[in-house]
Nucleic acid binder design. Structure first.
Lengths: 209, 209
DNA sequence: CGTAGAATCTAACAAGCGTTAGTTATATTC
DNA sequence: GAATATAACTAACGCTTGTTAGATTCTACG
C-alpha cells in the first residue's frame, strides 16, 4: 500500500494566485502587502518568491490569465451561432457569466491597469483591445445585415461592456436573482431599451424579473 | 497705493485638493504618497498637514464634495421637468456632463470606496445610495405613468449608471466627439436599444454620430 | 536508507511610508 | 513697526514595505 499522500489537488501556486485576486480586489494592488497575501495562502512572506518572482508578476499573471481566457472562451461561445444578434446574445451571456463566476480576477483585471509596469501594461491593453474588437465586429456585422441599428459602434460597445462588467462590482452569489436571469435582463435592456413604445412592439420574449 | 498682492484666486488647499484627485486617479490612494502629492501642489511634505489632518481626510473631502454636488445638482437639473422621461433625460445629461468635467474627482469617488475608514465609508455609501435612489424614483414614476417599460428598476438603474459613469474612464476632452453628443447617444441607446425594429418605430429624434 | 530537489522558514536589508514637532518665513492687524 | 496668526520648511520618528540569502524541512525515488 502506498503510504504517501497524492499531490494536492490545488497547488500552492494556485492558492496564492486565488488569494491574491481576492486580496487585490479588496484592498487594491498597492494596498495589499506580500505578508498578508502569504498569510492568507498559508505561508510565510518570503516563500511566495519560490512561486512568483515579484509582486508585480502575480498581478500580471492574474490579468493575463483572465484576458486570454476571456478571449478564447467568448470566441467559443459565439462560434455556434450565425446571426449577429444571436452571437451578441451569446457573447453577453458569457461575459456576464465569467465576470460573476471569477469576479475577483475580472475585477482586478479591470481596475488595476494603472498598477502594471510599462511592458505588462502594453501586453494587457493589447489583449483588452482584442476582446473589445470581438464585440465591435459582431455589432458591425449586425448593422451591415440590417439586424441592428447602431449609430456609433465604438460608443455602443463601450456602453455595453461597461454596464455588464459593472455587475461584478455588486453581484453576490447569495442574492435572489440567478446570473442567467440578470444576463437575460441586461440583454433585453440593451436590445430594446426602456421606452414603452419600442419595447411593446419588439419581437423577442419579454423578461420580467 | 497698496503694496501687497491680492490673495491668490485658488487657495493652496484647493490646489492640494485638485492635485490629490488627479494623483489618486492615476495611482490609486494607496499608490500615492504624500510627498509626491505635496510636490505637485508646490509644497513640501509636511506642509500638507496644515490644510488637512491626514491623507485619509483628503480622500474623504474629495468624495464628500463630489457626492453632495452630484446630489444637489441632479435635483436642480430635473426640477424643471414634469414628465419622468424628460427628468431621466436631464438626469443622464447632467450625470455625464459632471463625470466628464470633473472626471478626476468622480473617478476617485467611484473607485476608492475600499480605501475609506469605516465611518467615512458609511457616510459616502449613504450618499451614493441617495443619489441612486433619485434615478430609481424617476424610473418608477415613468413605469407608473406608462412612459417606460422597466421590468426591474434596480437592475436598470445600476446598468444605466454604470455605463454612464464608465465614460469618465476613457473620455478625453481633446477627442472629436463633444460631451453632449455622447450624452445624447447614450440616452438614445438606453431609451431605444439597438434592435432594428424598435429603434425604427420609436418617436424621438434619431442621433447619428 | 540516503540523497536530491522542491518548498518553506527565518532574519535581515535598504528604502519609503504617514505623521509629528520645532523652527522659520510670510502676511495681517493694531 | 511691533505683535500676532498663518503658512511652509526641516528633520526626524517608528513602522512597514518588497525583496534577498541562507538555513531548514519536507517529499519523492533509487
Amino acid at each position: 500500500m502506498k503510504s504517501t499522500l497524492p499531490p494536492p489537488v490545488v497547488s500552492r501556486k494556485a492558492i496564492i494566485f486565488k488569494e491574491a485576486a481576492r486580496l487585490f480586489r479588496e484592498k487594491g494592488y498597492s494596498g495589499s502587502t506580500l505578508r498578508e497575501l502569504a498569510g492568507k495562502a498559508g505561508v510565510k512572506g518570503g516563500s511566495v518568491y519560490h512561486h512568483f518572482s515579484s509582486k508585480q508578476e502575480i498581478l500580471f499573471t492574474i490579468m493575463e490569465h483572465t484576458m486570454s481566457t476571456l478571449i478564447m472562451r467568448v470566441q467559443e461561445a459565439i462560434a455556434t451561432e450565425t446571426k449577429p444578434i444571436d452571437k451578441l446574445r451569446k457573447a453577453i451571456q458569457f461575459h456576464i457569466a465569467y465576470h460573476t463566476a471569477d469576479s475577483d480576477e475580472t475585477f482586478v483585471t479591470d481596475a488595476e491597469l494603472r498598477s502594471l509596469d510599462a511592458d505588462n501594461l502594453t501586453a494587457i491593453v493589447g489583449m483588452r483591445d482584442h476582446y473589445e474588437r470581438i464585440f465591435r465586429q459582431i455589432m458591425e456585422e449586425g448593422v451591415a445585415r440590417g439586424e441592428m441599428q447602431i449609430g456609433n459602434v465604438r460608443l455602443a460597445s463601450k456602453a455595453l461592456l461597461q454596464m455588464c462588467t459593472g455587475i461584478s462590482s455588486w453581484y453576490r452569489p447569495e442574492g435572489e436573482k440567478s446570473i442567467s436571469d440578470i444576463a437575460d435582463y441586461y440583454i433585453e435592456l440593451f436590445f430594446r431599451g426602456i421606452s414603452r413604445t419600442s419595447a411593446a412592439e419588439a419581437g423577442g420574449r419579454a423578461v420580467e424579473l
